[in-house]
Write a protein that binds this DNA or RNA. Sequence first.
RNA 1: GCGGAUGUGGCGGAAUUGGUAGACGCGCCAGACUCAAAAUCUGGUUCCGGCAACGGAGUGGGAGUUCGAUUCUCCCCAUCCGCACCA
Length: 865
Amino acid sequence: MTNRYNPKESEPKWQQAWLENECFTTTKAPGKPKYYVLEMFPYPSGRIHMGHVRNYTIGDVIARYKKAKGFNVLHPMGWDAFGMPAENAAMERNVHPAEWTYANIDAMRSQLKLMGLSFDWDREFATCDVTYYRHQQELFLDFLDKGLAYRKEASVNWDPVDQTVLANEQVIDGKGWRSGAPVEKKKLSQWFFKTTAYADDLLESLQTLERWPEKVRIMQANWIGRSEGLKMTFQLVGEGAPEDGLGIYTTRPDTLFGASFCAVAPDHPIAESWTAKNREAAEFVERCRRSGTSAEEIETAEKLGFRLPFSAKHPFIEGKELPVFIANFILMEYGTGAIFGCPAHDQRDLDFARKYGLDVTPVVVPEQEDPVTFEIGAEAYVGDGKLANSDFLNGLEVEAAKDLAIRKIEERGEGTRTVNFKLRDWGVSRQRYWGCPIPIIQCDTCGPVPVPKADLPVELPSDIDFSEPGNPLDRHPTWRNVKCPKCGRPARRETDTLDTFVDSSWYFARFCDSHAKTPVNTTDTDYWLPVDQYIGGIEHAILHLLYSRFFVRAMKDTGHLSLKEPFAGLFTQGMVTHETYTDEHGKAVLPDLVRIETQGESRSGIHVETGKPVSIGATEKMSKSKKNVVNPEEIIKQYGADTARWFMLSDSPPERDVEWTDAGIDGAWKFVQRLWTIVHELGARVDPGDTQKAEPSKEAIGLRQLTHRSIASITEAIETFRFNLAVAQIYELSNTIRKSGPALKDANAADNEILADAVKALVQLVAPMMPHFAEEAWSNLGYTGLVVDQPWPEAKSEYSEIANVTMPIQVNGKRRAELSVPKDVPQAEIEKLALANDRIQEMIGDKAIKKVIVVPQRIVNIVVG
RNA sequence: GCGGAUGUGGCGGAAUUGGUAGACGCGCCAGACUCAAAAUCUGGUUCCGGCAACGGAGUGGGAGUUCGAUUCUCCCCAUCCGCACCA
């Protein structure tokens, strides 16, 4: 045994040992509880970053810990491999997206393997494997069959230069993010998944997700955006008034008597039919379209309206007619795309009414106000109160008034009580090459026809041309041309591919049997699902998690799965941050090129190449553009995987951001070495021989006590994702072993055994975090087998109980002395001892004792006055 | 605007049901070893006063409940995150 731990030798050795022993190859094990740990699978960008290191370290600690606790653990890994960067690489570097992607996967796989993660690599797949996406095509067809997938016209952001559809995030200030060309709205026929079919259930079931962060559940609930209200139709009168009236949605039917106008969205059918014949209206709508959608713009945008020539009849007030506008603040996507405006009780309506000189009639009066004198100023009143100026609603509370108003409208057949959602159906068509082809054939005679299942997969052609912008599938000379499966006439393939979020919406189910001939193997999914612990970044709080929740429901309704919620537990880890550095020209500098010099507590940076000073900027999320990145592979080469893993788990709670620092990684490295010294110098077990009768020393009993208390608290810390606490407690235990160890080592057999047991426990406790180190230590101490196969150490309460407790004694709430007493001394006795204490006597002096509070095993407080 | 979180030494952060505030780590200071440095080890390190014993203050600010508040209640401030013209 050498006295330095060498990760360069140890890490590959133990990785090989785990592989040879098939430690992480998982099969169903009846009789053992299962545990499915999953980290969000990565996009194969080319190399892993520190965010991955943190994510997979956390997951690996859980997986290894649960395995030691006797669970049958599934811990798979794969690749979210479709997506735009591969196409960009193809255009920029003239390399095929598939080639680029698979090369990246190979590079990243070997990087991940350096980390010593307990993945079952037999289950690996990439979503761009035809063996994966063919099943996705089958799911699509099944969804189609059940009405969970459908086709409709929808408007998209169209980049006229790149000839492509842009996601909302790719539109910056109304321009395409790559081309810089002004983005146009274009109507395209697109495929949708009917997420709204499960809107209620997706919302309701959030309550059952007890092991999800509250924050994520709230975000999802807001996204689904359920509201209760009234959908009703206003009769329209006047020139060119549409005969079927104006359908509106409101959550405030109680304020109907305060209505002073109606408004429709600029892209509402009524607006569109009018703009078709009126130039002024068309210009107005055009102006609305141009206005920005950024936060400040919406905040400050003026409410604008265009008066239509017809009016709406008030449902309750005979003879009252409300002007109808096209208004810029009405959204076509929400409700019916039309409203009635009640300026007194809605700020937007009020702003609009003030601008166009419309009536402002308060109909809800706050309790402390007089209904006669109550007036609305610059701010709308949105609170509770009693109804006024409202005929049959007068005097009612808001809730009761809503109810009655709805019932009246329903009685008259003019509307219905409605639940409305913000959640929209999920548009999944992407006009791109590198994605899962949608298995549809467009026939001029039959319309869109599903590809028969026997003809699956619809494989992406590999001979493609990226020299022109747009979707190369559209330009492919032969791939598109097929016969209609229904009528046999010439037809064309759908050239759109599926949104990559579809790929990641069911991969966790596929992992249960990655080689299944059907999308999933039900026997295996029944056994493994749900994922017991899912771990990833908060950035996926809404879309990915919601889509997955939708998918599992849809797969249940199409007979593929038998559960509703894919992820029983969710943990969202924080980001990895780093200081930013800039040179004298303000250009970002990589940390590798900066040498930090410290003088006392002040720090300055020097560029290692130019020797010029570098200024130290804010600590931010690691990103290529800020150049504040540290390459994990370099770190692992220099320090070993265990040190990197240990650092990721130290100090910062995993849900918060962690700052990567040189000092931090150095500190972790030093601890690994110190731990090695402990194992090396103190861990050996001596043969008890004939000294068996020896009693353990007081010090040894103390160490045994700490060992078992540490086992208990570290177990608890890992269970609750408080790895920083587990780390702190491991430090404490190792510090104590280091200090008391030398005296115990050769004292007697009993002491030696306690010491050896403490070191053994320490090795096992660090094993989930530093697995290679633990194996090396385990084998060097002469224990048989692998640590990875050992059961988790057990905290024995008979060893961890304390005989004496130290209790502080307070006088008037201030600590003045301490008292060390046996654990079960009666309260009265404690009180007597406390009062007898010299120092306490001194503090009390001749003052009267008003009260003595004794909390057994905790504290004594003497109140004097 | 709405929703959510956070606020504790020089820094990251600990503190069962209210019960010794600052565990553990980093940094810093002093010392040992060394020709020297690195590494390692030992001790100290909330602030103010004091040689010390010890005293006083102290968990963003202010009030309150309590023998006792980082923890509970109310008000305020700051920072961060998410959503956002959602009728």
